[in-house]
Each structure stands twice: as structure tokens, then as C-alpha cells.
Nucleic acid binder design. Sequence first.
DNA 1: CCCCTAAGAGACGCTGCGTCTCTAACGGGG
DNA 2: CCCCGTTAGAGACGCAGCGTCTCTTAGGGG
Lengths: 203, 203
Amino acid sequence: MPSRRRGEELEAAILEAAWAEIQEHGYQRLTIEGVAARVQTGKQVLYRRWPNRVHLAVAAIRHVLGPLVETVPDAGSLREDYLTVLRLMAGRARFYTPELLHGLLSEMPGLHDFFSTLPGFLAEILRRAAARGEITHADLPDRVINLPLDLVRYEGMRGTRNWATLAEVDLEKFFAEILDDVFLPLVMALAGPRNPEGRPPIG
Amino acid sequence: MPSRRRGEELEAAILEAAWAEIQEHGYQRLTIEGVAARVQTGKQVLYRRWPNRVHLAVAAIRHVLGPLVETVPDAGSLREDYLTVLRLMAGRARFYTPELLHGLLSEMPGLHDFFSTLPGFLAEILRRAAARGEITHADLPDRVINLPLDLVRYEGMRGTRNWATLAEVDLEKFFAEILDDVFLPLVMALAGPRNPEGRPPIG
DNA sequence: CCCCTAAGAGACGCTGCGTCTCTAACGGGG
DNA sequence: CCCCGTTAGAGACGCAGCGTCTCTTAGGGG
């Protein structure tokens, strides 16, 4: 009577169920038994694939969100390029509640790297800006290059807030704040065309 | 035979035991039963005072670390004043492992505010800098004012790292990076004496 | 078509939760 | 100085979920 699922099909069903559990009850209440019950399979089937709930959760996230973005199309200016990146991040971050993030990180500290930087395309964006003449050179300190993303990530861990609950407008306001109040003034101070030596204007 | 502890004395013993458990086994493995056993008392004694382990842990932290700093003495310059604050933070942060932080925050999202800003003395520091003539005005965006502290907090949540494991030297290097590569250039761009209108040099 | 791998199901012992019950030490009010 | 109410200290209880294990049987590869 029951046609048994195998391989890909089974795995996908499990990961989708795990994701559904996370969304419905939060990470804290994600439970191997719950997922097994939801997919109507034995716990052993899960334990055969993932050692514990963190790994299951990470696999579920990777399954539903797909692979990370690889390249950022040229949007014409440094600001617009970074904005593109921030919007992409927010699009994914929409699914990361602080509860989920802290939960994962508390159980698997090394995991932070997964959410952390993809220095490749940021360097590329900087290089394009230098080529356009917006900035004099692209070799800024890593901390500066990553600053906008770090701030977005940090914000994503704050309070009870969830990106999903933020209106489009607030999101754009937040991005503008990061770029216009912090990042761009800083980049211009360090590598703006009016300051060609690449030193801060004051000592 | 056994002289029973009461009130203050008992409470202190419990909180110190809880703190010891956290330090020995980490927050993940902090358990009400473990603490009760360690202080040699009944679980009910703990549950009478705190509803769950998060509250117990927070109480323990507040107990061993004492109250927050209230004011920052004038160290003579904007940089030195901020440095004082960062050092104070690192002193306390020495006890917050990422594992502890994420653990607490995942179970009690509202808690983030406890670690978050004390805007009072930062504004005061800015005002002193303006009075000295280091900057033209003190009303910078909140995001800018809090930037160094946010970066320190964010760093404290990263990876497996723990402030306690960082040598004095690395700590100072990290602070210098934050202040000299990011914060001060930014502040000077926004309110440096050479840019009295308080606008970024570009755009 | 057969056989071996793995799915589906659930029992098992264990740890820790949060509630409850019981006894007796302590200390404040008389 | 004693008595009584509060609460410390101890542990039993039922429950949830873990991670391991055993068992039966579906179904795909050879």
C-alpha cells in the first residue's frame, strides 16, 4: 500500500518539514521527533543523515533558500551596488529570525562563518568604483569593506525584530542610514577623490 | 546539624553556583538540577525565585559582574574617551562567551536591550569633544555614535572567539582598528573642523 | 525474480523539566 | 524563652525529547 520515498525525494520532504516546523514553532521548539512525525518516517532516517538538530536546521535552510548569490551586476555606482547587496541580504534575512540565528549560533559557534562574508564580490564592487573614478583606490581595510553587511547582520540579531516584519519603506530607510550616514562618508574620507592620499582628513 | 541558609546568603550561594556552572560547562549545559545539587538545596528553592534558567543566568551575571558603569572620566580627547569605554566593555565582555550570549538571546530575545546602549555617557563624550573643538557639533546620528560599541558587541558574538582568550595586545589592536579605521575618520567626515557644515565631503 | 539495503515504526533507558509533597530548621512575635 | 508560621532541603512524579536499538517489509539494482 504505502509507496516508500527514497533518496532525493525523501530528503527533500524531510528538509521541507523541518523548515515548516521552524517557521511554525520557532527553532527552540524544533524537535527531531516532531519532524519525523510530520514526514511520517522513523527517527533513524533523520539520524542517518544529520547528527543533530543544528545540522538538520542548517540543511533545511540551505535547501529552501538555495545557494548564495555569486555575483552582483553593475548597478552604475558604489552606492547602488552596495544597495543591491544589502537588498539581497535582506531578502534572505527575511527568513532568519533573531531567535533562529541565536539558537543556531549558540549550539554551533563555528557556524557564524556561514553567514559571514563573501569577500569576493565586495572587492569587485570596490574595484568597479575605483575604475569609475568614484574612489581613488579599492584597497580599504576589510573592516570598512564589510561594515555595511556587518551592521545588517548585527541588526538582524537585535531584539525581537524580524526582517519579515519590516515594511519595504523601513528597510530602505535603514539601508540609506547605513550607506549615507556611515559607509559612504567613511569611504570618501578614506579614499575620496578630494583626498587622494587615502588618509583621513584629520590625523 | 545542618545550619540552613536563608535570604541573602542563600541567594548569593545559588547565584555563585549558577555562575560556576556556566563557566565550567557553558550555558547550554546549565541546568536547574545541576545548580540545585551544587548548592545542596531543593529545586523548588530556585523555582521560587526565578522562572527558568535564562532568568537565573541573567541574575547570576548581574550578581557577579555588579552594576554597569555610570560615567566616563574625561581622558582628554575623543579618541581616549571612547577607548576608555571600549576597554570597560571588554573588561565585562571578558565573561561573555559567544555561546553564553547566543544562548541567552535565543531564549529571551528582549534581553538584547540589557547589553545595548547607555546613550548617556556617549553623548557626554561627544559634547566634551565639541567643547574642546575637536569636532564642530555633537549631534551625530545615533548609529554613528554607537558604532564602536556595536562593532565590539558584534565581534563578541562572532565565531568561537572569546574576549578572555584575546591577549591585551590584540584587544588594543582591535580597538585601534575600530577607532582609527572606522569611527574617527567617519566622525571627522561628518563633523570635523575642516568640514564645518557637517556634511560628507562627497554627495 | 531475488536479495540486500534502507524506510517506516516504535520500544527503550536516560536526562532534565516543572510541580508537588513532606519534614524539620529557623527566627520573629509574643 | 517558647511557639508557630514560613520556607529550606530533599526527593518523587509524570512528561517531553534525546539518541540507540530492533524489527518488518518495500522496492530497486543486478
